[in-house]
């Protein structure tokens, strides 16, 4: 019994770390660009598949593959912002229009990935089963999962420090408060926005490859990860980075408890049930901004 509880806790912590990453990137983009960027999920797919391409198909060293994948995810996010969202914002398109366009972005990217790499489920790690595992109070955690957890925490800390203490972070906060005023005081809001999309998408890429190393990748993973991130954000309090992290861990705990009580296939349904409960009773989230 004790073993199960520990294992559920460990699983929840790892899932929570991955959801936190997605939530952080989503929150960053949402609070700056002010729309639900569904297409953001596709960058997780891009991250996972870039690692797959460089590491498994071209046999590049793992660190090079990871760095290339992060840059590619960021760059594609940046490109989509410049080609699509920037123009829509300029025309003062409503949020719903931006949401629909981003739905299109998601569909296109996931389908292109499926054409290039087939829609089969693939694994990223080369030594399946040969991983070092650690035992904590009777629960098992793999080395990959420890790495995911550590890098997740590092990224979260780094981002919150950057946002709080650097000039660049201030510029981002100024643009998210009021883009027009930020422009008047001389902030190049277009460039700041570009960076926000780059960083947010790079983080999504990291989340995607984390899932890939932990379990595996498939083109549709982007949408399900994104939805988890969005639920975490809403549960935690939209626009609040720490709230998103809190929501992510809470969601991961509920999901894993649910998977233990019923069965793993119901995870998605359970998490949406949580979302709908929150939208009804506490739409501003646990920790509103």
């Amino acid at each position: 019994m004790m073993d199960i509880v520990v294992q559920i806790a460990l699983n929840a912590v790892i899932a929570g770390a991955i959801y936190s990453l997605v939530a952080i990137g989503f929150n960053l983009i949402y609070s700056t660009a002010r729309f639900f960027d569904i297409g953001y999920g596709a960058l997780a797919t891009v991250g996972g598949y870039s690692v797959f391409y460089f590491y498994k198909m071209l046999n590049l060293p793992i660190y090079v593959s990871i760095i290339l994948a992060i840059v590619i995810s960021g760059a594609i996010g940046w490109l989509v912002e410049k080609l699509v969202y920037k123009k829509l914002r300029k025309e003062k398109a409503s949020n719903v229009v931006l949401l629909i366009a981003s739905l299109g972005v998601l569909t296109v990217i996931q389908a292109i990935v499926a054409i290039l790499f087939t829609s089969q489920f693939q694994t990223l790690s080369k030594d399946i089963g040969g991983q070092t595992t650690y035992e904590i109070f009777g629960g098992v955690i793999t080395q990959t999962q420890v790495l995911i957890l550590v890098s997740g925490l590092l990224i979260m800390t780094a981002l919150s420090l950057v946002l709080k203490y650097t000039l660049f972070g201030k510029a981002i906060r100024a643009v998210s408060d009021d883009e027009e005023v930020a422009r008047i005081v001389g902030i190049n809001s277009g460039r700041v926005m570009g960076w926000v999309f780059f960083i947010g998408s790079a983080i999504a890429g990291i989340a995607g490859m984390s899932v890939g190393f932990d379990t595996g990748i498939e083109p549709v993973m982007g949408l399900s990860l994104l939805l988890k991130g969005v639920i975490a954000v809403i549960v935690g309090g939209i626009g609040n980075i720490y709230g998103g992290v809190l929501g992510a861990f809470l969601l991961a705990i509920i999901e894993n408890l649910g998977a233990w009580q019923f069965s793993g296939e119901w995870k998605d349904a359970i998490s949406f049930f949580v979302l709908i409960i929150f939208l009804i009773f506490r739409p501003q989230g646990i920790w509103p901004k």
């Binding site: 699509v84 931006l98 299109g104 972005v105 296109v108 054409i115």
Partner: peptide, 19 residues
């Protein structure tokens, strides 16, 4: 998959040029 690419592009292009 091409079908998906097509309708995804249709969504993006319509939002951009003919909402």
């Amino acid at each position: 998959q091409m079908r998906q690419v097509t309708y995804g592009l249709i969504l993006i292009l319509l939002m951009l040029y003919r909402p």
